[in-house]
Amino acid sequence: MTVAQRLEALELETLELGVEASILTVTVNRPAVLNALSPEVINELREVFALLRDTLGKANSDGSETASAPDWSVRGVMLTGAGERAFVAGADISAMRDMTPDESRAYATRTQELTSWIETLQVPVVAAVNGFALGGGCELAMSCDYIFASANASFGQPEVALGLIPGFGGTVRLAQYVGSAAAREMLLTGRRINAEEAERLGLALRVLPDVASLHEAVRESLALAAAQSPAAVASTKLVTRQVRPLPTDEGLALEAEAFANRFGAPDMLEGTSAFLEKRKADFPGF
């Protein structure tokens, strides 16, 4: 079974999945509660992204010609929420209210692990933020490679109003998007920002007028990435993440090593040959 076929076989109650032209759409489908991030949603998102992480492009990771062909039946993921009011309005407070410190620590750890799986997935993941992306919803969006937003989107980390702090990566990733000063202001005040300010600060890469155009723009972006070498895209994701905390000279050395490792690989040979022969590349995926 391909990755796409395995996804279709999953029995999910809080998510809707759809694969079209190698692009997987994952929709949090709890519009009555603004797609709140309940433990059940977390568990089902973990199921989906663990399957993707453990399957995509694994077969030929060593470059062996005798290994079975890698599975790139999913080449990109759009993560969104049902309806027009919310991407994910936040964590499910009713589910968190009576947690003990040990239970909340385990909850945070499981959710942080999910966001790490999303961030490190071999294919691009784009958040299509429609409406509210607050608290855990904002943290979920920030674990993606980049964020597109509809004009009615709003972002925030309002945990201080609940006597809490972000627990799913907000204190780490928000500064990576908007810078340390803007992140501290948002985190310490709990202030919401609209789509226009999110774009200005760098949290949202693009703002689209409505949900339909939002989804179309995300699919177009993912389709463009899907037309490239999947092995090179996966390597680029890995290197951009690895160099982020490094001094410039160490980051350049790591980049040079990763660059050299692509030489002689099947995708590199096919891509360069296709360019020289003025034809479309047919990448094997490793």
Rank of each mutant, 00 (worst) to 15 (best):
N29I: 04
Q122F: 07
E250Q: 15
L114G: 01
F263W: 11
F49Q: 03
G81A: 12
G136E: 12
A212S: 09
E159C: 06
L208I: 02
V26L: 14
S154H: 15
N35P: 11
L51G: 05
L222D: 01
R279Q: 15
R53C: 02
E197N: 00
G135T: 10
A128Q: 07
D282E: 15
Q112Y: 04
A260F: 07
R6C: 11
V129A: 03
T240Q: 09
I23M: 03
Y146K: 13
V74S: 03
T272F: 07
V77A: 01
A67G: 06
T120N: 11
L208H: 07
T109V: 04
S104D: 08
T66M: 15
M142G: 08
A225Q: 04
L7D: 00
A212C: 05
D210G: 02
E220F: 07
S116G: 14
P101H: 11
L162M: 13
R279C: 09
Y177E: 04
E113L: 06
R85K: 08
V41R: 01
F263M: 11
E250I: 03
S38V: 02
A50C: 04
G170S: 08
V74L: 03
A67D: 13
C144N: 02
A217N: 08
K278Q: 12
R173P: 01
G163E: 15
V77W: 00
I193F: 06
A281I: 06
